[in-house]
Amino acid sequence: HHGSGALAALHADGPHAGLPVTRSDARVLIFNDWEERKRSEPWLRLDMSDKAIFRRYPHLR
């Protein structure tokens, strides 16, 4: 199991509170979210491209 239990660094406060600090933090969040959702949506594709990251977390651009 590759990303399970990996912890992402999140901004503690300010405008980005609760959001990932780096792209690799964002990838951890996206992976964990996908892993949760694919139980009920097995067709869901995992997209951890930069484009997917920016779409979801525009502050990382």
Rank of each mutant, 00 (worst) to 15 (best):
H1P: 11
H2I: 13
H2M: 11
H2P: 15
H2Y: 12
H2F: 15
H2C: 15
G3W: 12
G3F: 13
G3Y: 11
G3D: 09
S4H: 12
S4W: 09
S4K: 15
S4V: 13
S4C: 15
S4I: 14
G5D: 08
G5E: 10
G5A: 13
G5R: 14
A6K: 14
L7E: 10
L7I: 13
L7M: 11
L7R: 13
L7A: 10
L7W: 07
A8C: 09
A8R: 04
A8E: 04
A8N: 04
A9D: 08
A9R: 14
L10K: 05
L10Y: 12
L10R: 06
L10N: 15
H11F: 08
H11A: 04
H11R: 04
H11Y: 11
A12Y: 07
A12S: 11
A12T: 12
A12D: 08
A12N: 08
D13C: 11
D13L: 06
D13W: 10
G14T: 03
G14Y: 03
G14V: 15
G14F: 03
G14M: 04
P15S: 05
P15M: 06
P15F: 04
P15I: 07
P15K: 06
H16E: 05
H16S: 06
H16G: 03
H16I: 10
H16R: 05
H16Y: 15
H16D: 08
A17K: 14
A17N: 06
A17I: 11
A17P: 03
A17R: 11
G18R: 04
G18F: 04
G18H: 05
G18V: 03
G18K: 05
G18N: 06
G18P: 02
G18L: 06
L19H: 03
L19M: 06
P20M: 01
P20L: 02
P20S: 01
P20K: 01
P20D: 00
P20T: 01
V21Q: 07
V21E: 07
V21W: 03
V21C: 14
T22M: 03
T22W: 14
R23Y: 15
R23T: 11
R23W: 08
R23N: 07
R23V: 14
R23P: 14
R23H: 07
S24Q: 13
S24A: 14
S24K: 13
S24E: 13
S24D: 12
S24G: 15
D25R: 02
D25Y: 06
D25K: 15
A26L: 01
A26P: 00
A26T: 00
A26I: 01
A26V: 01
R27W: 04
R27L: 07
R27I: 06
R27T: 03
R27K: 09
R27N: 02
V28W: 08
V28L: 13
V28H: 07
L29N: 07
L29H: 03
L29K: 03
I30E: 01
F31I: 06
F31M: 07
N32H: 11
N32I: 12
N32M: 13
D33R: 06
D33N: 06
D33V: 04
D33P: 01
D33I: 12
D33G: 04
W34D: 14
W34A: 01
W34M: 01
W34P: 00
W34I: 01
W34V: 01
E35I: 15
E35G: 05
E35P: 00
E36F: 09
E36K: 11
E36D: 09
R37W: 02
R37G: 05
R37D: 15
R37F: 03
R37Y: 15
K38L: 07
K38E: 02
K38F: 07
K38I: 13
K38Q: 09
R39K: 13
R39T: 10
R39S: 11
R39D: 11
R39C: 13
R39I: 12
S40G: 08
S40H: 10
S40V: 10
S40R: 11
S40Y: 14
E41Y: 07
E41F: 08
E41Q: 07
E41M: 06
P42E: 04
P42N: 04
P42H: 09
W43D: 13
W43M: 09
W43S: 10
L44F: 09
L44Y: 09
L44A: 08
L44I: 07
L44H: 06
L44D: 03
R45D: 08
R45H: 09
R45V: 14
R45A: 14
L46R: 00
L46M: 06
L46T: 00
D47R: 02
D47C: 06
D47T: 02
D47S: 02
D47N: 13
M48K: 01
S49K: 01
S49I: 03
D50Y: 06
D50V: 08
D50M: 07
D50S: 06
D50H: 07
D50A: 06
D50G: 02
K51C: 15
K51E: 15
K51D: 14
K51H: 09
A52H: 07
A52M: 06
I53R: 01
I53K: 15
I53M: 04
F54W: 06
F54I: 11
F54C: 08
F54S: 07
F54Q: 05
F54D: 15
F54Y: 10
F54E: 12
R55S: 12
R55P: 02
R55L: 14
R55H: 12
R55D: 14
R55C: 09
R55M: 13
R55A: 14
R56D: 05
R56K: 13
R56V: 08
R56H: 14
R56F: 05
R56M: 09
Y57Q: 11
Y57G: 01
Y57T: 00
P58R: 01
P58I: 02
P58S: 02
P58V: 03
P58F: 00
L60I: 02
L60S: 00
R61I: 10
R61V: 08
R61F: 09
R61T: 07
R61M: 11
R61P: 07
R61E: 07
